[in-house]
Design a binder for these strands. Sequence first.
RNA 1: GGGGAAUUAGCUCAGCUGGCUAGAGCGUACGAUUCACAUUCGUAAGGUCACAGGUUCAAGCCCUGUAUUCCCCACCA
Length: 906
Amino acid sequence: MKFASSYEPNQYEADIYAAWEAAGAFNPVVPAVPIDNNSDGIDDRFEKNGRYYSIVMPPPNANGNLHIGHGLTVALEDSLTRYHRLKGESTWYVPGADHAGFETWVVYEKALEKDGHTRFEFSRDELYARVWDFVQMQRGNMELQLRALGASCSWDDLTFTLDENVVDRVYTTFEKMWNDGLIYRGEKLVNFCPKHQTAFADIEVEHKDEKGTLWELAYDDIIVSTTRPETLFGDTAVAVNPEDERYQHLIGKTVHLPLTNREIPIIADEHADPEYGTGAVKITPAHDFDDFEVGNRHNLERIQVISEDGHMINVPEKYEGLTTEECRKQVLKDLKDQGYLKGEKKIVHSVAHCYKCGTVLEPMLKEQWFIDVEKLAKTAIEHLERDEIKFHPENKKRVLINYLKNLKDWNISRQIPWGIAIPMFRKVTAEATDEPDWIFDRRTNLTEIEKSGVTYVRDEDTFDTWFSSSHWPIVCTDWSEENPTPYYPLNVMETGADILFAWVARMIMMGLYVTGEVPFKEVYLHGLVLDEHGQKMSKSKGNVINPMELVAKYGSDAFRLGILRGRSAGMNQAFSENSVVSGRNLCNKLWNISRLIQSIIDEDENEGAPENALSRSINDNGSFTERPSPATAGARERSEKDAFLAPTYTTLNQGEDWICREINDCISQLETDMKEYRFAEAVETLYQTIWDKYADWFLESQKIYRNVPLLKITLEHLLIALHPFAPFLTEAIWQNLSWTDGFIMTAKWPSELNFDPMTAEQFENIRTIVSEIRTTSQALSGTNKSKKYPLLYDNDSLVEDNILLIKTLTRVPDINPLNGAPRGLRLALANHEIYLDVPEQTVKDYKDALTEKILAVGRELDALNLRMSNPNYVERAPEHLVKETRDQIKEKQALIDRLKAQQELI
RNA sequence: GGGGAAUUAGCUCAGCUGGCUAGAGCGUACGAUUCACAUUCGUAAGGUCACAGGUUCAAGCCCUGUAUUCCCCACCA
């Protein structure tokens, strides 16, 4: 006996993972070969759908730790991967690691500061090299954690977002876009973090509502409203709404800009909202997004008055060099002293913050690289509307289309050294007037290049991380123009719903642009994992759950089962340790189920019985007698193609046929659930089949009837079916069982078990009988401390054949034929002549309960009769439903009759 | 302002194409039991499916409206 009395995951998980990895079990069976160009291609494509299954991991931060969201991601993706691998597909789960441009940079810069350095002491290339070393030193935790979670990914193919092939592909795309005129350099306002000294894409900005003040300033005859008085030095106009009666006469005039000696025009623009503040707004094109647009419409000058590090520039000497905050105070004081400040009121407005450090972002005028997204978005929308990608949840497709329709040009420049260098070089030889100002070149390892005698220097900026990650499905599958791989498009892209726009949208645009095909056939988006009260997890709230702690405490499988339960696509849902505990309990249950079966098999072998010995019955005294194979029981041969390792089985009693049926149903249910990405339901189904059916009924019955071959094959089926969700447990059991061979991980998905449906259905009768005996015994016992009563039966072969089983399951002290007149309490639910031999007084005490029961059934019967009395129902409802209702009426009526008979007996 | 979602047992959630006498886990109550498993077994209580209309033979599910909650996008001088 190799099985300990409880499952201890820590004893098995690491070894099992190492054994899988050493055996190369994670690698795709059929390597990605180029599609044969000589053939018409159609057959290859057709074939590929059946044989290849590819999925790529959203790359976790290379030098970070996994959080609960990663835990969910792995649970989902690995379950899919393992399921499809068991189904016999050539499955490729590609792991990844992200250089996490901004995140890592923030961490590194902090470390630099701690050592008393700043980024400005180093060149861009020096910084890049230093962060590279920093990352290499820190790297590895995340990969170990993925292993601990059981991710069956192909480690040989791990893709790091700064790998050479990634950079190559990114440059190729960039070059193509540059040549196609999709890339342009523009001076635009960008959200700029003065602390981190970098710009962000719109999508990275976090807007928060904050209390602020709306000041009213007198610009001569007109009073403007502003929340940022310090930017007045950059004002180049005052705008009023063209419809606004109050200001009609002022349009076209100029006003004096306080604290300066400048005059600025009053212009008419829709942007000014007559309802808001005074209806007149100062226009600062260099420091406000709306004003920038207004400035463009009216050809206004852009005066930059705030530097990138947040200090005042191009302002009167008095204010020069102040921080924006200091300047605001000073300006307000001066305005007040000089009588320009006419009022102030408190307001709430939303302010852009750096999502990393919380610093208020400064709109900053910068020259940046942009992608003209119009065509890309349009193409993506076309393919989406053609339903080339199936979304889970479905509604996200419309959300995505809506986003793409309103997408603005994409700023891809970042002023962070840690990233892929933008392969663009700026002309510095002034006299070379015919040459373009910017040229594309891949040699980003050089800071300066020369072409036809002209010198160019490399742009210092790096790519927005989403620009490179939008290539993820392409680079992970090694797709190329020359060798399109059958693993592209991916079968599914699984990721967080929160990065639908940032990532999924861009992968689709980029995939189509580069390959002409959508990058994946389906998208599964998971929601946020919330704490047990439905609150977002955050460090400040202290409610963060570390997945690795749960894995250490309860095992990887328990965590995976726990996090999948009660979770559906796209929803933010609560999670608590409880669900992991219940996962752990299932693991332990299955462990003990296997332990019991192994012990039966060990006994069987010790007795030297032939391997495919037929079942035996246990006698009252505990000894076994051989049961003859009843010809009428419809013995079923196990067909060749079903054969795993256990020999052919034969079903010999109701419970055995029944469990075959239940396992078949479970597995086909699983197949549907996996196809529809209903993970929680899949787990639920397995839970019920293993626990409520296999253990509670079938195994209990096998304590009497021992069918060794059937025990083997049914256990194999359940283990394989659970493997995608609980890989370690099922492998540990598989390795401990005496008759199994190889890895369960690479076993074959079970095919159908043969059984006799009629016999299987009879077992439902037995279950009903047993349940009613249990219920009634408990109800009768009441104050009587669960006293058990003997069971009597009259001329009933089902009961007679299963005396021992019923006795075991109900713990009634005795089951005997009823000799003579009926006595005791007749059990009515099951249509069998059975009685609990209860003293008369106890039966009388039960009478009220019985009356209640009759009334309840009567109400059900009334409802059914009402339905049938409606001619429209009989006419219009499907025939099988009407028939069903008729049958139910018959049944209920019979039940009432039986209950009444029971009552009369008392 | 635009878009999306949720509302079902004390809690967390299922309920798919309308057929429901609405389910599960956890929790609660009562009971059992010591060689597969106390990480166990049995039984039970617990619901006006947010509200109001409508469609239908039939509505938790479809339609209209209302309320509450959450998320995303845009705006907020």
